[in-house]
Structure formats: C-alpha cells, structure tokens
Design a protein around this nucleic acid. Sequence first.
DNA 1: CGAACTTACTGAACACTGTTTAGTGATGCA
DNA 2: TGCATCACTAAACAGTGTTCAGTAAGTTCG
Lengths: 203, 203
Amino acid sequence: MGIVERKEREREDMRRLIMDGAKQLFLANGFEKVSIRNIADAIEYSPATIYLYYKDKNELLFALHQQGFIKMVQEFRPLLVLTDPFEKLVQMGRAYIRFAVENPELFDLMFIMTAPMDKLDLEEWEEGDQAFGLLMHVVQECIDAGIFKQHDVRATAMMIWSAIHGYTALFLRKRLGMFPDCDRQMIMDDAFNLFCQTLRHGL
Amino acid sequence: MGIVERKEREREDMRRLIMDGAKQLFLANGFEKVSIRNIADAIEYSPATIYLYYKDKNELLFALHQQGFIKMVQEFRPLLVLTDPFEKLVQMGRAYIRFAVENPELFDLMFIMTAPMDKLDLEEWEEGDQAFGLLMHVVQECIDAGIFKQHDVRATAMMIWSAIHGYTALFLRKRLGMFPDCDRQMIMDDAFNLFCQTLRHGL
DNA sequence: CGAACTTACTGAACACTGTTTAGTGATGCA
DNA sequence: TGCATCACTAAACAGTGTTCAGTAAGTTCG
C-alpha cells in the first residue's frame, strides 16, 4: 500500500511549496522584511502550518542558505576547465563578486547573516567545505605550477578568500560611501586587479 | 537668565543617559536582543521618553556607530609614531583585527550591520573618511619610501582594507567552521602574515 | 500671588513580530 | 461503522518599534 509513500511525497511537496514561497519573498523583499505570516499568506495557509514543516524561521533561512551554496558552486564549475590555474583563480574571484552582486540577499545569507549559522554551529558543514575545497584545489594547482610559493594551502586559500570577501562585504553593506558614486566602481575594479597583480609580483 | 541654557544642558544630559544605558545593554547583549523597552527600564523612564530624544532605534545605533569610529581611530593613533611605514601598516592591520575581536558588537555596527548606514546614506561620512584617510596616508608613505609601486593610493588602500576586513568579517560571522577549532587561530594568523608578506614579495 | 502657557513625561494603544496550543474536520484503518 | 490518526487553523502569548492623548510639573506674565 503506497499510502505512506504518498504521504511522504505530499510532505515533501508541502516543504517545497513553503520553501519556494519563502524564497520568492525573501529574495524580493529582503530577509528582515518577510514574516512567517507573509509567507503563509503567499501560499494560502495559516502561519501555524509552516511550523509543521520547518522548526522555525531560521530553519527556513538555513535551507535557503544551503541552496545558495549549491548555486554558487554551480557557477564555479564551468571555470574548472580553464587551463591556466592562475587565470582560473582570478575568474573564481570575479565569479564570487558577480554572484554577490547578482544575488545580494542570498550572498548575505550565505556569508554575512548570523541567523543560519546557528543551525549548524559545531557540526560538519558540507557545502562550505565543498566551496572552500574548490578554492584550495585551484590554489594547490597554482603552487604545483610554480606560480605561488609553497606556503600552507589552507592559509593561502584563506588569505585569498578573505581579500575577495572583504571587498564584496564592504560593498554590499554600503561601507564605501567615502568614495564618490562615479569613482566607486572604478576603485573597486582597480582594487581587485591590484590584488590579483599583487599575488604575482607583490605590491 | 540661564534657563534655556540649563534646559539645553539637561537635554544633553538626558541624551547621554539614554545613550549610556543603551550602549551598556547593546554591547553586553547584542543589538538584536535589546529593545527600547529594555533601555527604558534600565534608565527608569518610559519607552516613549526615549523617542523625545532620539528619532528612532536606528538613530541610537548610529550615535554609537560614530563613537565606535572615534574609539578605533584613537587606537590607531599611537601607531603613527612608528618610523617604518610598512611596519606601521602591518600594525594598523593588527589593530583593526584586535579592535574587531575585542569589540565585536561595536565592530559589527561599524562595518557589517546595515541599520546605522540608513542614517547617513548620501551625506558626507566624516568618521569613515577620517579612518580611511589614516590608512591612505600610511599607504602613501609606503609608496614614497619605495616599498610599494606607484599605483593609485585609494585603490591600494582599498585593496588592503578589503583583505583585512574580509578576514575579520568571516571570523566574526562564524564562517570558518570548516577549520577545526584548534587550527583556526593558527590559520588566521598564517593568512594575515601571508598577506603582509605577499604585499612585499608576491605570493 | 494666581492664571495661562509650555514643557517633560507617561499609559495605553496600534500594528506588527515569531511561536505555541487547543481544537476541528477530513482521512485511513479495523 | 467506529475509532484513531492526520493536516490544518483560530486564537492566544509574549514580545517588538512607535505614536498619541493626557497629566502634572515648571515657567512666564498680568
């Protein structure tokens, strides 16, 4: 009797329905401005129903957080065919920044907001591991190719990630107000290129 | 008759009383967990009174935001006596990170949270300018001393700030879960040192 | 001095928020 | 058919930022 299977399918459908509704609202209006009641309205259920499928709002955020990593890694994957490892690294940096600019809310959730991180805390973090592993792999290729000196791969990858992340985080959180609007984009690009250049030849 | 002066003084006192109460609660419990009612309780006034002195909660946050910059610049100032400009730069980086670790809530407010930035938006941002100006000054010294090549000072300073900021932002927002607890501190230090080294000699 | 005006302050309300619980009506199984 | 299980919800709880009418002092002036 396929009843339990059907129920399970229906449950999965319902989770998806909630998730999709939540995603739409979150990405359109920002996470702060979307309430459980908003989501409930959008999918035409009562707010309490959402709690039968997700423990709380943070669990909803965390599910989206996971999806974000899958999406980002997908955008990285095409770059892996590039042969020059340094070029690969530079393009990954650009892809990271592009992802942040094109999906600001998702990026926020993935790398800035604290809420979703309360959901994994000390456990394993597969998605984060995978994305960082990708970066480490490329860095290792750069070392193997003699482009980078033989420093610790993790520390090197960490340093590069930090630099690119800082750049995007400051931009997204509107901390570049000291630059005139017209110059901002140029300074940002210059800073990124300068960083890439510095990796090869120092400042 | 000094009545209007006294009133003005009393108003200033009241603003300080609110600010001090708010600061204590904010820095102790985090910004999200402190309500206007909490602050009102702490200073033994009604919540509505706070609105007679500050337009809204964000204005309170912004005032603290400003104080944070003053405090940070004060911690930078002693470093300016150092003679080696590169050493000065490295120590400023360390000071930035130290400030973030020792004042996580304040740092958050200054560089990560969006709330206080809604309060200045397009206007001039004196405090930010001053802090960034300090960095630019040291970078210029490095260029003048022939330590750095003659790139655009703003872009160079921006690149360096980004790198250091990324490092601290990822740490504060708990995005380093992929590293085992025991290694984390070491990787962070290695990454920082590696960045400093890279500035001089490339990676 | 006493009346009138001004000011500082507050209780109570408004419109929200996330979350829990008791209860309802449909579905599945004996 | 009757009982149990299930999905679902209305209503409530405790909290949030914020506003507003009303009160009780302080100040000014005739």
